[in-house]
């Protein structure tokens, strides 16, 4: 599940934000602080996760820090999934 989730998120980011396929994207690649994901469009990643996983994140939770790498996103998303149960 977890690996699958990670793959999904990576894929979404690649599709939604990367300008060309040659750019490298890893679990710990900085997303927002590096400018790959601009803070204006972070919202679509948040909406994607919420819809895909049936969770709801507050603006405080979905901070630019929490969204700054796939790893940190996974931490947040897992917490929300656990709360849901």
């Amino acid at each position: 599940m977890s690996d699958e989730l990670k793959k999904k998120i990576l894929e979404y980011i690649r599709e939604e934000y990367l300008e060309d396929d040659s750019m490298e994207l890893k679990d710990d690649t900085p997303l927002i602080s590096s400018g790959i994901v601009d803070s204006f469009s972070m919202v679509s990643l948040k909406m994607y996760l919420e819809e895909e996983l049936g969770i709801k994140m507050t603006d405080e939770e979905a901070s630019t820090e929490a969204f700054d790498s796939v790893n940190s996103i996974l931490v947040l998303v897992r917490k929300k999934l656990a709360e849901k149960k």
Binding site: E19, D38, F40, V43
Partner: peptide, 26 residues
């Protein structure tokens, strides 16, 4: 909904506004 390569002044203007926002590839 803004193009991702818009000028800095448009970005600042959008930041000053409470509207929801999203961007699309150039």
């Amino acid at each position: 909904l803004n193009d991702r390569l818009i000028h800095a002044s448009l970005i600042d203007g959008i930041r000053l506004c409470s509207a929801q926002r999203d961007s699309y590839k150039n």
